[in-house]
Write a protein that binds this DNA or RNA. Structure first.
Lengths: 144, 144
DNA sequence: GGAAATTCCATGCATTTGCATCTATATTGG
DNA sequence: CCAATATAGATGCAAATGCATGGAATTTCC
């Protein structure tokens, strides 16, 4: 059976797409102005920083970032070339590897966060009360 | 002065990014399965269909779709090659042009909508009540 | 134990995007 | 009116993405 969405759902979908694009464009633009890498690099650095000594397998990072496998493989290439992460052999699985953040990676994450946080405040924080932000999160999580 | 976002804002931002990606991935995947072009083509067709006989200047479509100028220029190339739109000279401004949807464009938009609507129902409609969807829209619009 | 299937990650090739810049026309300010 | 400036849109080149497939190691199942 083919179900059509209600009008309100279509409106929410459109608002979702626009809000995400506007906010993301803002943040990406601020990072670029500051001569910093894109958001995806931050996200990867953040996940790897959280993972600490244990590091993360590429496929775990893929899931965390909702990245396609081949894109993560090449993002890791670029970040490795930039000295931000290391690829270590994985003893449990010789097909695999473990990604670790480097000192430079941690340092860059901090520099990015300064800009990112400010941009986030402009794009989101300053536009919503705490309660609104919480309601928004709750509703958005129903979509995942 | 540098302002940091409150925790709730950070949560909302993350939820926003994830929800949008999950929903968009779902819709794009359904379109692809059905052998149809990506969402951006639908959006362009929809704007041009709404504009009717008057058509739209490329820069207007840019704004409506939040597309970069060079990307819109090339999207129009591809859609024109596919016979979905026409580019007509603009009498008021000889630098410019006016984009019009073709019959094939209208037909494709309908075929896409059948798939799109279904996917939207799965990704959004079925997961939110009407009231939730309306609240969500209201909050998201504060971000734009 | 071993063949078949699956998982992990990389990569060649085509398409798309981003950046910078170009041409042509329009607008503005003196 | 004219020179300077701004706007509309295209495009060459580099980088990123998507797609299909590859090789290697692991797991499954008989």
């Amino acid at each position: 059976m083919v179900e059509k969405p209600h009008e309100a759902a279509i409106g929410a979908w459109i608002a979702l797409a626009r809000a995400q694009r506007v906010a993301t464009n803002h943040v990406e633009a601020r990072l670029k102005e500051a001569g910093l890498p894109p958001l995806a690099w931050y996200d990867a650095l953040w996940e790897l920083d959280k993972a600490g000594e244990a590091g993360l397998r590429p496929f775990e990072l893929e899931t965390a970032l909702l990245f396609a496998q081949y894109n993560l493989s090449r993002l890791a290439d670029r970040m490795q070339r930039a000295g931000l992460i290391e690829r270590r052999a994985c003893p449990q699985d010789r097909r695999g590897q473990i990604l670790h953040i480097s000192e430079e990676g941690r340092a860059l994450r901090w520099r990015m966060w300064a800009v990112y946080a400010q941009a986030l405040e402009e794009a989101v924080g300053s536009r919503l009360t705490v309660e609104e932000a919480e309601t928004l999160s709750t509703l958005l999580k129903k979509l995942t």
